[in-house]
């Protein structure tokens, strides 16, 4: 386990574009995201595995995962 394993990803959420469909929350395999009101928010960044499913399935261009 080097330093690379500890490095957290960066999840960028565009709250103006998010319509709150909760696709990203439901498809996230490690429950990183949660719904906060009508938009999505990051709950547990440490659990993110960078699988990008939220990014790929977001219909609104509202979420992106960077290394």
């Amino acid at each position: 386990m080097g330093e690379a394993a500890k490095k957290l990803p960066r999840i960028v959420i565009n709250e103006k574009f998010c319509k709150g469909c909760s696709i990203c929350v439901d498809f996230c395999p490690t429950n990183v995201l949660e719904m906060k009101g009508s938009t999505v928010a990051v709950k547990d960044l440490g659990a993110c595995t960078r699988c990008q499913l939220c990014d790929l399935r977001c219909p609104d261009f509202a979420i992106q995962v960077f290394d």
Partner: peptide, 17 residues
Amino acid sequence: KLPHIWCPGCGHGIVLK
């Protein structure tokens, strides 16, 4: 032109991407 007019959860956005 964004955000687009499609409803929350509409698949068209995913197809566009």
